[in-house]
Design a protein around this nucleic acid. Sequence first.
DNA 1: TCCATTCGGTTTCAACTTGAAACCATTGCG
DNA 2: CGCAATGGTTTCAAGTTGAAACCGAATGGA
Lengths: 152, 152
Amino acid sequence: MVKRTSHQSADCLIARPLDAIGDWWSLLIVRDAFDGMRRFGEFQRSLGVAKNILSARLRNLVAHGILETVPAPDGSAHHEYVLTEKGRGLFYVLVALRQWGETYFSGPGEPYTFMVDTRTGRPIRRLEVHAEDGRRLVPGETRLADFRQQPD
Amino acid sequence: MVKRTSHQSADCLIARPLDAIGDWWSLLIVRDAFDGMRRFGEFQRSLGVAKNILSARLRNLVAHGILETVPAPDGSAHHEYVLTEKGRGLFYVLVALRQWGETYFSGPGEPYTFMVDTRTGRPIRRLEVHAEDGRRLVPGETRLADFRQQPD
DNA sequence: TCCATTCGGTTTCAACTTGAAACCATTGCG
DNA sequence: CGCAATGGTTTCAAGTTGAAACCGAATGGA
């Protein structure tokens, strides 16, 4: 084994993102960041992850431009980790994952949970894929593989 | 180290799905499955993954009910791997990941690529999150963390 | 002042996972 | 029959992960 395979230079726009976030912890860190967590200790307590692993993951997320460090507002010597715009772009990935989880990973006997509109407290709609003209598309109607074309 | 941490029993509907697909290969296998691949060899050639790893991943995806094995239609002794309904539910995760990849992982100088409506060849729309009443929601307006409530 | 704690990590080291390559069992075919 | 292709499993070295120990810089009390 030379090294764990990297998808970084893969010619696939699903593989490349996975190189940045495709491990067991990164998306959970991003999720916590969406929930307002910013400090090393907050992530550590929330996730229960070993500190060396968290340290490595945060470094990787910063290196990929998903999080950035900012000086702590309380004037302490430490810094905080906040989502960049690129990081906030992961929102849809998390919503998709969450809705899939709601549907297929709710334990039997567990109360059914769902994402809610914080304004009304009502469940949000399920994600849908739409064509340019507004038609709803199902899996067979769009391809996940690359399709190269110069934008006109 | 006891074992790699499992999120299987985590009380979080983002963590639990990650336990099933949160490694470097599983989502790529699912992506290929959406593109019609079914045979061990097809996945192996497409991904360039070691056979033992592919074998373990396929077994895991089957165990999680994301893929299922069906007898090969050509009457050979082998079987094929096809997406279950649960597996097809990952479509939105892949679309979200792909759109994020299109936006932030297109190499400079690379032709811009995007997912297209196979009927018209035109790009599909970006995913959006909507409230029950149709209002478009941005990250702060819905929470990824669990919110438990009995559906009425 | 001085000891104790918290915060944010890094280091260490054993166990576990990954990947390349070799190996193996069936079928397919000439 | 001989030989290649398919679909794996086994083996083993190297890489990754995680628990725990350690560390330095700031607080925080007594």
